[in-house]
Simulated scan of single mutants.
Amino acid sequence: MSVIVPVYNVEQQIDRCVQSICSQSYDNLEILLIDDGSSDSSGSICDEWESKDSRIKVFHKINGGLSDARNYGIDRAAGELLMFVDSDDYIAADIVEVLYGLLVEHDAEISICDPVHVSEGESASFCHVEPAVVLNPYDAVKELLYQTSFLTAAWGKLYMASCFSKVRFPIGVLFEDSAIMYRVLERAHGVVYTPSRLYAYCHRKNSITTSAFDERHLYIWDICKQIESRYANDSADVRSAAQSYRMSAALRIYLNAPKAGFESEVSECEAWIRDHSLDVMRDSRVRRKTKFALLLFIACRPLMRFVYGFVDRWS
């Protein structure tokens, strides 16, 4: 089993991350630390870990971004199973044991758990929740797009390496997980999801997910178009799921993009929201906060923007 950790300028967090992996109750691991051209001491810290644990392999490469580092790890992983851990996050001591057990028990190819969201200075409170849910790939894609259970993130999941055959993360863009995760799920004959919270997702100031809106954030709109096109000839339920996912992206861009410099993109999203809001609101599987946002969009857009400032986007 191979655990792939892209590393870039995380000298304050990398020890905690690697320690959590090395301390797993399931210890038959290959741990790949991909130093993606760090300019701080992250690379040397990785080297120190390699000297202490024979399971660790360190690779130093020119900076290419998160996707490039993950792909680099995939291409060099020897395990039949893959897991991704971001280097500023950490994991519960039994996450591998739990997810591997679910794969074996349900003869699945992907197992998924939930994250614990951790702010700076906090510690994660991991927990186990029953029962697990077994899904075929078709239903797993719908769950992904409706965003009512597991996330599109690559982390927090255990995969048969074959699920990434001919699939790689797109380089140089945001939302790289959204761009491929539906394709990865399609390649699994079975997917099992546990709501157990076993992955500590750490929110840092000035991280990619908290950075100011720029043109990179528009890539999600193109991804949504690709998803809708992929399922255009499928049944109505998966088309509705794709529409729900696109609505979330449209609202995200409409509410976050500055009008100066993004006039056409904001106008396109505004028109799309207006044209599809009723269909999405009629869909019983759409998240309540999305429906509430659409009600405010129709009734009072200034109030919508005010309320949005208090919304937890991770809930």
Results as ranks from 00 to 15, higher is better:
204 R>E: 11
308 Y>A: 13
245 Y>Q: 13
139 D>N: 13
94 D>A: 03
266 V>I: 12
291 K>T: 02
70 R>I: 12
300 C>P: 11
211 S>L: 13
179 A>R: 08
239 R>E: 06
36 D>R: 01
180 I>C: 02
277 S>P: 10
168 R>T: 12
281 M>G: 00
124 A>P: 05
61 K>V: 05
174 L>C: 14
44 S>C: 12
29 L>G: 11
93 A>G: 08
239 R>S: 07
55 R>D: 06
29 L>A: 05
62 I>C: 12
196 S>L: 08
167 V>K: 02
269 C>H: 02
177 D>W: 01
70 R>W: 03
227 I>E: 00
124 A>G: 02
140 A>Q: 05
128 H>R: 14
221 W>L: 15
64 G>N: 04
118 V>K: 03
271 A>L: 12
189 H>Y: 07
253 I>A: 03
166 K>C: 11
240 S>G: 09
54 S>W: 11
271 A>Y: 09
138 Y>R: 14
280 V>F: 07
291 K>W: 02
179 A>D: 11
214 D>A: 05
235 S>K: 06
314 W>Q: 13
111 S>A: 10
239 R>F: 06
166 K>T: 14
260 A>M: 12
306 F>M: 12
203 H>P: 07
165 S>H: 11
21 I>P: 15
105 E>T: 15
298 I>Q: 15
107 D>F: 10
67 S>Q: 09
246 R>N: 14
215 E>R: 15
27 D>M: 10
283 D>L: 14
265 E>L: 11
242 A>K: 04
29 L>M: 08
24 Q>D: 06
165 S>T: 10
174 L>V: 06
52 K>G: 13
55 R>F: 07
10 V>D: 09
65 G>A: 04
